[in-house]
Design a protein around this nucleic acid. Structure first.
Lengths: 336, 336
DNA sequence: TCAAAAGTGTTATCCTTACACCCATGT
DNA sequence: ACATGGGTGTAAGGATAACACTTTTGA
């Protein structure tokens, strides 16, 4: 069966993209590059820059593994050295509903999460790359100062409308999907359900299905709104890169709880408050100070350096990550 | 940059393989197919059947998504209907250290975990497919009756020997890998470290690196043992399928704790003891009866049917899964 | 002396873990 | 009556979540 001529075989390209995360002044940043995607027919893309994640085509004859290829792409495109790297998911439907041109190679895209230790030399970034706050792409994910207002002013009204559309629901129930109202409750914590900060991807996918993110329109799905009345539902990205970013955010938020990954994003020495703010910035929610400190205390993940910080107000003790915990304990993390 | 002639582009095949799990009399079974892999030069493969997972080549022009393709492959090759399906990982180095023939297409393989509700019609399986107990492939993973004897009689002695090999360790420390002794402790719970039943893949990968599984030898790595003194370190599989199975086992064991996936493997009505045995069978360890029952009780995952089972001994109450919990609670599972 | 931030003490509650005993049925 | 498996009660210990208050510095 593998004797068929090569021409008859499917032509597949594998695209690797990384969500490279760092922290800048306790704000989570994501590495983006200016996209190669052409503007649409109306020339609307020119109005607003379309970003994409650093990415590249996987050539197995050049790179032994996927991860090696990924590291090369990021170094080449942004001069960043990656620390922690983790594979997220492989999407087989990058074009989604968009018409595929005849004869074009099909693209399968593999998403990665990577962490890098702060913007050491911001000037070292090439002009086509930069870091951008990740909440620009997902404004509804930032609950550090309580429930974001835009949820009640723009998002939920539009989503409830979507959930009440009986006609649209018909087709979905045929393929055993959960009713829209229930998915809405589970993803966005409507009707007293709790908000789960890890469900970043589920929320984005639901917005995509509802036609409320621009990528859905670009992919040829029916737009839920007229062009002039779109509220800010987060900046779009090229290809399926915002979906990959959503996967990365959700995964990182989860990982935080059982692996000491925050420390990849911290400087050598840091105060406990800075650590707390970093965790809050990533998980997008506010934490109880005393409980957080006690937690850090008895997980024994850090040790005092003996030095003091030089902030205004009372000086704080500086700590460093005890890297030997990686060797002793099975699953060290900050349970929250 | 995408104007290059097709011939210059890398030729990649995507292989999709599924670890299809079911329970047969409270023993976890895995769906395997007779492999198409040729026997080695010495004809040794003829002595022992080499199994592979149901799998197939992904053709994007025929299947809209990866998951759809997967379901078709499994139905075609084994007549099984899949319930729960989850993507595991994409391996870019299927051939690993083995020499790749010139001109051969490079294979990237995507592994899936799938659950199916019991062998409804065992005779419906084609002669090339069957279910096999998964502990045949990973004998060291079954701790239901305490620590498996083979760990102390064969595995640990060989592994300690590997860990004490100073020369081999040099190259690894160069690329920032953890010392062998520490990895051994973390994966296999040596020196009082606890055994973590979820680390199935980590253990398999370590055995592969140590040259103690037959796939490593097949892939051209130095064998750790002479041909005639191999103890039973689990049955090998074709390609990287045992690695995919290891990933699946680890993932399922983890998922069990925060999603109600066991019920995909249970019949409509079941006793609490049967449920406990099923969980034990998957997680590979013994559970405390009373605590397990209390857990099931206050997660409210099941409800009594009112009927009784017809075992010998005292008849047991039958329960069914309350499928509405999927709609109400965010993360229902059996914490263990 | 006051603002700003660091740092501590205590309690109620729930969940986990471990313990040992009684019950209903078929042979 | 006894073997076989079903089914409960209870108490110690630890983790969690909530509460408010004191301390140290720079301006």
């Amino acid at each position: 069966m593998s004797q068929t001529a090569p021409q008859a075989q499917p032509l597949i390209d594998i695209d690797i993209a990384a969500a490279v995360v760092t922290l800048d002044h306790e704000s989570p940043q994501i590495l983006v590059a200016r996209s190669a995607e052409p503007p649409d027919q109306q020339g609307h893309a020119a109005e607003q820059v379309l970003w994409s994640l650093p990415s590249g085509r996987f050539d197995p004859s050049r790179y032994r593994t996927l991860e090696i290829a990924l590291r090369v792409f990021v170094t080449d495109q942004a001069g960043c050295d990656l620390g922690y790297v983790e594979q997220l998911y492989t999407f087989g439907d990058r074009g989604r509903a968009a018409d595929e041109e005849e004869g074009r190679r099909h693209v399968v895209s593999i998403g990665y999460l990577a962490l890098t230790g702060g913007i050491t030399t911001p000037s070292a970034l090439p002009p086509t790359a930069r870091f951008r706050p990740w909440y620009r792409f997902f404004p509804w994910e930032d609950w550090r100062n309580g429930r974001p207002a835009m949820l009640d002013t723009s998002l939920m009204p539009l989503l409830t409308q979507w959930a009440e559309d009986r006609a649209g629901e018909q087709a979905e129930s045929a393929r055993r999907a959960l009713p829209r109202a229930i998915r809405l409750r589970q993803c966005f914590g409507a009707d007293g359900s709790p908000w789960d900060e890890e469900k970043v991807l589920e929320r984005y996918e639901l917005l995509y299905e509802a036609g409320l993110v621009q990528e859905a329109v670009r992919d040829g799905r029916p737009a839920a709104l007229a062009r002039n009345q779109w509220p800010n539902l987060g900046e779009p990205m090229s290809f399926d890169h915002r979906r990959i970013l959503a996967t990365a955010m959700g995964r990182l938020r989860g990982k935080l709880k059982y692996r000491p990954v925050v420390f990849e994003l911290m400087p050598e020495a840091f105060t406990l408050t800075a650590l707390q703010h970093s965790v809050e910035a990533i998980s997008g929610r506010h934490l109880h100070k005393q409980n957080f400190r006690r937690l850090v205390e008895n997980t024994a993940l850090v040790e005092p350096t003996g030095k003091q910080s030089l902030t205004r107000g009372r000086p704080a003790a500086l700590f460093r990550f005890r890297s030997d915990v990686l060797q002793e304990r099975p699953a060290p993390g900050l349970r929250l």
